[in-house]
Design a protein around this nucleic acid. Structure first.
Lengths: 335, 335
DNA sequence: TCAAGATGCTAATTCGAATTATTACAGGGT
DNA sequence: ACCCTGTAATAATTCGAATTAGCATCTTGA
């Protein structure tokens, strides 16, 4: 394996110093730096002849930045079972990283204890990158707290509660998105709502439920929260509009209603709160909203560069776009 | 902007010298190096508390190892239009990188001149990684030659022709896979074959066509190569079995035949040569073979570690699995 | 003629971690 | 006291390029 040429080698060949080679190479003319045209030409000629290129490693050592942005996930991102969830985020991340001229480091080495990666372990590699984007439905609280405490530059995709300090994040504005859906349903005459789903655990779940509660309170209408529920229970309770946290649950409701000969949205309106984490049938056009995943990825990388440059703590919620499906209609229950 | 911690910082906090920190960090016990257990513990404690990791840049400047493997592609890998192609490879790459305890560096910074990234540019970052996996249907010949010439450790996914020297690669054994298809068709009575597709350009295309020519020659049957062809031309020429390089082309043929009231494989057998680079209708079950993409990704990373450890030049073709579809049947043309 | 200024280049240092050579200090034996 | 042998840690150097301070040498102008 032929040894790489160094600036020292070039300098020797051109009969100048290493410093001169560097100055010529970087075309420096500012601040009292002067190189005679013939010297410059001589150096350039040697460089041209030898095909020398600066060693990027050495170059990077000098400035502080590695131009590497980390992407941490608790699980592998490429398996097809996971691709649906991660892919849109990653698309945005990649796009913006390209703009920023940074490379992306996927922390595949993070040892998986109990099937789940950890950010901090015996030899955490998180600081290999200049900064890091965190990706996942929920992030370990202790990991987050440690990141904050240690001042690791990072941005979470998805809003996060404080963890010993504010957590920089780019999230989706679920409360507003859910309120919007309730507003529309109320305008169509609905008065009895149900929120179907966990509504707790991950911030994304809690935020949706919070938006739901705010909205029903604001309108003075009835709103109940059920973790699981069959179609029968909902109908028995006089519910006319269901907001399903999981798209697949919403879709299941629609299918169940159809099987019973009920009409959606005639007899029941079903709204979905964002995207699926489980596969959903695609023959049901649920009304709801779309999470701007790709945009979140982009903004997260932008935010990360802000963190790196100004040490700020950016927090931002992006609006979710309303999706006009076929499962929201006027309430025609007995009034 | 929180400055990165250095070994010097750790040393100060632990009340030792930078050299000691390095020795502890690398767990050096050989060659007369001794660190008192309590000193070691103290240093490790500071490291643990601060979450310090060695700057990969500095480390790489000195010796040669980051435990970072690069992944180079000429285009973004995450956009959904590209995900189908890259994802299975990446899945294998990620899986094996995890086994090897390495992180993956996606070269998103490579500036896109004319819409295409280049491996080598003014400030190539390819050497940030210990080694690199190259991914793409075709790889620029000049880039390849330069990689070989400069002794950059890398492995190409997909067979590559020599470029100023042998190119390390993990490919799919297209010739064997295509020969196998022809063998089966001949056994079913087919005597007039057509190869539909480019058959040139990327090695993967050329390899398929080569396998086709070998097979028809070996059997002494008729085989023609057409870049584009309508169903009519093929039938007029008495072709009974078509091997389509592009899955979508094969599927189109089948649909065209059905529209004409012809039976596949009754009147015409259609075989597909691997996977789709363009979307194909999924209601046609083409007979052909499956490219072991994920396995190729895995093996490429394994091969790369071999390159790194022993400086070898691994070249290997993986077998493609036969896919029993519904479009290959006995030849019932006039015989 | 001699200081002031311009010109052209280089020595020395820096970045962060790894390594080698070396020092410092015990305690033990004579 | 003196030498020897472990033991424990550090100073100094290295990698390749970028940068700064500074040293020669040559022009000018008074």
């Amino acid at each position: 394996m032929a040894k790489r040429l160094t600036q020292q080698d070039i300098a020797r060949m051109a009969g100048v110093s290493q410093a001169t080679v560097s100055l010529v190479l970087n075309n420096r003319t500012d601040g009292g730096v002067r190189i005679a045209p013939e010297t410059r030409a001589r150096v350039l000629e040697v460089i041209r002849r030898t095909g020398y290129v600066a060693n990027p490693i050495a170059r990077r050592l000098h400035d502080q930045r590695n131009r590497i942005l980390g992407v941490f996930t608790y699980e592998a991102v490429f398996p097809s079972t996971r691709a649906d969830f991660y892919q849109p985020f990653l698309e945005g991340i990649e796009e913006q990283a390209e703009v920023a001229g940074c490379d992306l480091l996927l922390f595949t080495s993070a040892k998986a204890a109990e099937g789940k990666r950890r950010i901090f372990s015996d030899d955490s590699r998180i600081r290999l990158a200049d900064g890091c984007v965190l990706l996942g439905r929920s992030i370990d609280r202790d990991d987050l707290a440690q990141l904050v405490a240690e001042g690791v530059p990072f941005v979470s995709i998805g809003r996060r509660d404080d963890a010993g300090g504010p957590v920089p994040h780019i999230g989706a504005d679920y409360p507003a998105a859910v309120r919007n859906l309730v507003d529309r349903a109320v305008a169509l005459g609905h008065r009895r709502f149900a929120y179907l789903g966990a509504g707790t655990g991950a911030e994304s779940s809690a935020d949706r439920l919070r938006g739901f509660k705010q909205a029903v309170a604001a309108h003075g209408v009835e709103g109940t929260h059920v973790q699981f529920a069959g179609l029968g229970q909902l109908l028995d309770a006089g519910i006319t509009a269901v907001l399903a946290e999981e798209v697949s649950d919403g879709a299941a409701l629609v299918l169940a209603a159809r099987e019973r000969g009920l009409s959606v949205p005639g007899d029941l309106s079903v709204l979905m709160l964002g995207a699926a984490t489980r596969p959903a049938p695609d023959d049901v056009q649920l009304t709801g909203f779309r999470i701007p995943r790709r945009e979140m990825g982009r903004r997260a990388v932008q935010a990360l560069t802000e963190v790196l440059e100004h040490g700020t703590t950016p927090r931002e919620l992006l609006a979710c776009e309303f999706v006009e499906g076929t499962t929201l209609g006027p309430c025609r229950a007995q009034g």
